[in-house]
Amino acid sequence: MPVRRGHVAPQNTFLDTIIRKFEGQSRKFIIANARVENCAVIYCNDGFCELCGYSRAEVMQRPCTCDFLHGPRTQRRAAAQIAQALLGAEERKVEIAFYRKDGSCFLCLVDVVPVKNEDGAVIMFILNFEVVMEKDMVGSPAHDTNHRGPPTSWLAPGRAKTFRLKLPALLALTARESSVRSGGAGGAGAPGAVVVDVDLTPAAPSSESLALDEVTAMDNHVAGLGPAEERRALVGPGSPPRSAPGQLPSPRAHSLNPDASGSSCSLARTRSRESCASVRRASSADDIEAMRAGVLPPPPRHASTGAMHPLRSGLLNSTSDSDLVRYRTISKIPQITLNFVDLKGDPFLASPTSDREIIAPKIKERTHNVTEKVTQVLSLGADVLPEYKLQAPRIHRWTILHYSPFKAVWDWLILLLVIYTAVFTPYSAAFLLKETEEGPPATECGYACQPLAVVDLIVDIMFIVDILINFRTTYVNANEEVVSHPGRIAVHYFKGWFLIDMVAAIPFDLLI
């Protein structure tokens, strides 16, 4: 008679799926529990143990900040960024110097990925580790590398530091407007667009060049630039800015003055950032001319202004700041037409079709709590990747769950009947059967004279019903998954307890 339990259901295979997918890609990662103190490590794979030199037993239950890997060259700011990422709910990448158990130093890129439950609360953290440099290539500990984003994938490793954006290309926007319009339909740009040429040739750093990471940081200074100062900065030398009595002219307006920039070969870094931020506020060169004239017309309804409409929906549905990093990277690809469009465009503009998908598509409701890094690593669709929660398995109709209350009560009843059979069957065979043979035949009273025979008949009927119930009862397979398919249940029961239950259900007393 089957006594099969499996009270692990309803099970959740999400954690096993993450481990299996990460292991298949030869990654070095740990999984931490966000619900406990210090976000203790609950799993670390073999790749991480080989990377740091510690065994799994030495890593388990330690804080996922990996303070046991810190050393003299470990930056405090990087460690603080990892700790801050564990307090938030967004994906974050941090470069930090770690030390192995043998004392060797290596520069590592740590990717902190939160995993949320159905309520939107962070319950786990996945920390992925990628070695960037070994100890002989690690720089000085005073050099802070965590304020910069990861290198873009479309640049060669040897040319990542030679990417320079020439400031004269930004200063000569109005001069290039006529050349853009003359391109017409034969050019790649839309009317009114501004073409910015980027020099990728390796050259020595000069005062006129600005690194790509500095251009990325310009967006942080746009908020500090007032509207009046932006307007004066875009007017140009024809209309000098008016300053109040006793007030000095704005240095932001002076930063885009061609006369002032041409007199000296070098520009201050602050002026460069502010000038680029001011130019980015204009949607095209037409807006710059309109600002000089004193009238700013409404933005025209053409394809170039609607190019950012799908980007707005993608940004609203993005799951991490990696989408913004990807957008900034692609927006700086050289030799393309940049349409400086305000994100607050007309909502009635139709979304044009684009061959290049900048932001990841909208994630469906079932995966809105899973970050983009987890979705990318697992390579699963929205119909396959579940949320991290207890999910009731989908069972067929008329199927009994093996952990249901009805099955528990039924098993206790069958257990009592088995005990009765084990006690009274030998007793009936030894004593009652002998008395029946010696006594007179009682054929007239039937079952009324033999109450134990009636009980034995009921017990046999219950055993037959138990066999039928076992054909529709779920079970737990070797992978700790609840199986509810009727065919698989029948095959599993035939290979197991079916023969024993059938022999126990045969009414031998009635056959004798």
Rank of each mutant, 00 (worst) to 15 (best):
P310H: 15
R92E: 15
P141C: 08
K362T: 12
E118P: 08
C105V: 15
A156Y: 06
N128Y: 06
S26G: 14
V36K: 15
G120F: 07
P151E: 06
D346S: 14
V131W: 07
L171K: 15
F22M: 10
P237A: 14
G192L: 03
P347T: 14
G262M: 14
S278P: 14
T305W: 07
M124K: 04
L316N: 11
V370D: 07
I96T: 04
L256K: 14
I126W: 05
S264H: 04
P168D: 15
S261A: 08
Y99D: 01
G6V: 13
K135G: 10
R5E: 14
D286C: 14
V41H: 01
D67T: 07
D144V: 09
R100K: 15
L311V: 12
K101E: 01
G381P: 01
Q247P: 15
P258T: 11
N12Y: 15
F340V: 15
L15Q: 03
A97S: 11
Q81A: 14
L248P: 08
L225C: 09
D219L: 04
A175S: 14
V196G: 01
N257L: 08
N317V: 07
A97N: 06
G187F: 06
P352Q: 07
G120W: 04
S261I: 09
L171T: 15
E90I: 08
D286G: 07
V384R: 07
A282W: 13
P241I: 12
N339A: 05
D321C: 15
G139Q: 15
M60V: 12
Q75G: 12
F163G: 14
G53T: 01
M137E: 13
I18T: 06
A34N: 12
A78L: 03
L155P: 07
T65R: 06
A260E: 14
R100E: 01
R366V: 11
W154F: 12
P249K: 07
D287R: 04
A97V: 14
P168H: 06
D67K: 05
A57L: 07
I96M: 14
D197C: 01
A185D: 14
P334Y: 01
P258K: 03
P334E: 15
A211R: 11
H254Y: 13
S153M: 04
D346E: 14
A253Y: 10
S351I: 14
P245T: 06
P205S: 14
G226K: 05
R273Q: 08
R73P: 01
